[in-house]
């Protein structure tokens, strides 16, 4: 018996289509194939016009994220065998993003949000190179390391209903990345970022659905990062209420 699996792929050609429609492709069912292999098979052997992003095939580049049977997945890490021989698998572009063509989403909005959180080390003083490197103990690294594993695959945006409902919401990955720098003992920009992100479209837009964390292929836990950020922002609010204008050295506050 021939081993087959059917992929129902969302197709959208902006020059002629009003909206996306599905096209079915039958591909060989091979237990070592991931969904991305099946897409490559279709593009090479069946329909060269199928358009999607991919690069590394090993869960590092973060470009092959798609909705597979309604779940945000890295297609390079999603095996056909998990759907079974003869199954029908739906492949769509990541949810809540504008679609450019077929399975390719527009990322410009996400990149603006990513930059808005200032994801780099902010220093109030910049010591000369001769002063040597900034030192960090393994414990200090461990505090933020989990949040630094993000590969910007945007699966968490496709999982988050708030992203869909509130297009201006900064979103899970960017907020987690802000927290990654806030918790880095070399960074002194927590106060500046708080001013940008303690906002209804920043951390307060999140309702802790928790889906971002569940779909994250790198176990970043953006939901946890945002709740921790909320707690910190709320305590800063109390501090500002009791001691108005009492802002001190932020570098002392980065450790919980």
């Amino acid at each position: 018996m021939a081993e087959k699996i059917v992929l129902e792929i969302a197709r959208y050609a902006p020059e002629k289509d009003e909206k996306p429609s599905f096209q079915s492709f039958e591909v060989p069912f091979r237990k070592e194939w991931v969904v991305l292999d099946a897409l490559n098979h279709i593009k090479d052997k069946v329909d060269g016009s199928l358009t999607y992003r991919w690069s590394c095939r090993m869960g590092v580049c973060g470009s092959c994220g798609m909705m597979v049977n309604g779940e945000p997945k890295l297609t390079c890490a999603t095996f056909l065998s998990s759907y079974g021989n003869g199954a029908t698998v739906r492949v769509e572009p990541l949810r809540y993003f504008p679609v450019i063509r077929d399975l390719v989403t527009a990322l410009s909005d996400f990149l603006v949000k990513l930059q808005s959180v200032k994801p780099w080390l902010i220093r109030k003083d910049e010591p000369p190179l001769s002063a040597g490197e900034f030192l960090q103990t393994p414990e200090q690294l461990d505090i933020y390391k989990q949040f630094s594993m993000c590969i910007n695959c945007t699966l968490c945006y496709a999982a988050c209903p708030v992203v869909g409902l509130e297009p201006t919401f900064v979103g899970p990955a960017a907020l987690a990345l802000a927290q990654r720098y806030n918790m880095d003992n070399r960074d002194q920009g927590a106060e500046e970022r708080l001013g940008l992100l303690a906002h209804p479209e920043g951390i307060w837009g999140c309702t802790f659905v928790g889906e971002c964390t569940r779909v994250c292929p790198k176990h970043v836990d953006p939901a946890g990062a945002i709740q921790q950020y909320k707690l910190k922002a709320a305590l800063e609010w109390v501090k500002g209420f009791i001691l108005p204008r009492g802002s001190e050295d932020q570098s002392k506050e980065v450790r919980p």
Binding site: A198, P200, W204, K230, A233, A234, E236, W237, V238
Partner: peptide, 14 residues
């Protein structure tokens, strides 16, 4: 006001 969300969130959590 955006800055007061922290207050309401603390009430929510408590």
């Amino acid at each position: 006001k955006p800055s007061n969300e922290g207050f309401f969130w603390l009430l929510f959590s408590a």
